[in-house]
Design a protein around this nucleic acid. Structure first.
Lengths: 339, 339
DNA sequence: TTGAAAGCGCTACCAA
DNA sequence: TTGGTAGCGCTTTCAA
């Protein structure tokens, strides 16, 4: 079937070892021999057998990533960038999508560990840190993406969520909003961070969040964000002190918020300004183009890939590194009240 | 390090062979022995070494997929479904995104072949069939997704593009459009099929495509579709017989078309009705919600996964199978002129 | 600078 | 029903 080192060695009257050394750029090989071997390899289109190599070295030259939803542009972008970056260094990427299902996520992690990936990246939808302790037991280096866990000392790459909240809220303040509400997400690190940033920005401007001005979208994940945002905003609009600006946890909920505002016969941004987070690709095409905080998925992907490659090479565990990517705001019509 | 068959065999006073047989559900093993082995495996959390197994069996239990753009919801959905489906059967999926770059795509295919994936799936952005002959040389079964090649007898799973064109065009006819134009894509099988369907639907209604009523978006891929659609539509609107209905090759170009129509001071769908293809998730949220032909990415993914699993198991090459998934139309405001 | 021997963890084959 | 032997394709070690 496939060409083996043995075949090349036999053709050239050399030993397998010598050929193997050429393959791996070993220094003590004669120039003449090296050339002959390389030439023959090219002729026969030799491809080393990864399985055989892995069996000895213990490295698989594979990296695994688990994301909550590959359909979500944020995660798709991250996965894509990582795939491209690590491929350049000879690694292949297993990509797994857990559908925001913690049980499924655990299975996928287990499968990738069984595959003995050199590094594992996880954007988790878990609520507990149990799985990660299991990863640590197997001594496989791993990186958390996007979502962090309290009390888990691990590598992390994600956006600075507190900065997200501050950026959006400060912008609304600057646009003249005085009653700024927040449609918040579930109890995961990203939502918590954005909420903190929101409060912090208000405090910095000597403002406060009025009673009832922080409402939660029920669902987790982005699936039902639209509906959650709609309902949350209906509550906000019924508040005795109606908000004139809303910072939404993510873009889907912001879409819902905008629908609710328009349905109530109000104008965007004149009556209520809206800012989302995610900067999804369709933001430009909406009835009212949506201002949104970009999480820098490209940057996150690159940072994660670089860290993953570093971990793959250092067999001795490095101490955990946390990288926070700075978000930036993309202003569109939904929040532009002053020019 | 990791637990091996040898360890379990030693613990239980059995031979490695016996333990290996239990692992693979071999029939001739005593009930008692089987239970003991399984119990110990669970205790030690034994994970078979894929590399060692592959070395002997020649199977890697991996499948590779290359798509033009993982950020595109159509391909993301397909990749996601395939990943989930094959995982259930113990396969892991390498996912690669070629950025619509033929050279990159070739490298990715080469890498996956070097990995000795059991099956390869490719949604190609190539113009030639060269790469695929190379795959055939290596005797790796492969499946083309979405885009086909004339003169290449291979497995194929994709939407019935002719049906796409007919569905969209027939709908416009039924909505009372009489001068139906087409914004077509580049010279790849999908665009050609949709164009054919467009002509066929017109012919079936004793109508014709007026001169200048088929305009091409310049770019390939969906990246620049918006702009291409905008410019193509400007040409159409300047035509002496202005279209009253436009079927666009894909959704991005349809967005561009709608912008051009609105910018020209015309109404959608009263003056010009628009239908796209792709049914992207944001279609509902647009200024004018976009009617679109859904390509059934979920169905395509499932069919592709099923076929891939079949190919993975039959080492003897089956004769190529072509599966055409039926599209369906999602009608929204952009084309709804009659109720 | 080259190569013989050993062995990675597992499965295939055949004998007991 | 169980297990000994051989070997998958490669790298590691150490001797020539």
């Amino acid at each position: 079937m496939a060409v083996r080192l043995k075949d090349i060695a036999h053709d050239l009257g050399l030993s397998v070892v010598t050929v193997s050394k050429v393959l791996r750029d070993h220094p003590d090989i004669g120039e003449e021999t090296r050339k002959r071997v390389l030439k023959r390899m090219k002729q026969l289109n030799y491809q080393p057998n990864f399985a055989a190599r892995s069996l000895i070295t213990g490295q698989t030259w594979t990296i695994g990533i688990v994301v909550p939803d590959l359909l979500h542009p944020f995660f798709a972008q991250i996965a894509k960038v990582i795939s491209v970056q690590v491929r350049k260094k000879g690694y292949s990427l297993f990509i797994s999508s857990s559908d925001e299902d913690p049980a499924l996520e655990q299975e996928e992690i287990a499968q990738l560990l069984a595959r003995r990936v050199d590094v594992l990246l996880v954007a988790s939808s878990q609520w507990t840190v149990e799985s990660f302790h299991r990863i640590e037991e197997q001594k496989v280096p791993y990186i958390l993406l996007d979502r962090q866990f309290a009390g888990l000392e691990s590598n992390f790459v994600g956006v600075d969520d507190r900065a997200v909240g501050m950026l959006a809220t400060t912008h609304l303040i600057e646009q003249g909003c005085r009653r700024i509400a927040h449609v918040r997400g579930p109890e995961i690190s990203t939502a918590v961070g954005r909420l903190e940033g929101y409060r912090q920005a208000l405090a910095a401007a000597q403002m406060v969040s009025l009673p009832g001005h922080v409402v939660s979208i029920g669902a987790s994940g982005d699936h039902l964000g639209d509906r959650g945002g709609y309902e949350a905003t209906q509550k906000l609009l019924a508040n005795r002190s109606r908000p004139d600006g809303i910072f939404c946890f993510n873009d889907p909920s912001a879409l819902g918020a905008m629908r609710a505002i328009l349905d109530a016969g109000l104008r965007i941004p004149e009556d209520v300004a809206v800012v989302g987070c995610g900067n999804l690709s369709y933001s430009d095409f909406l009835r009212v183009p949506l201002s949104s905080v970009d999480q820098g998925s490209q940057t996150i992907g690159k940072a994660a890939a670089a860290l993953a490659l570093k971990l793959a090479h250092n067999k001795s565990p490095l101490r955990p590194k946390s990288e926070l990517v700075a978000p930036h705001l993309v202003v569109r019509a939904s929040s532009l009240r002053r020019r």
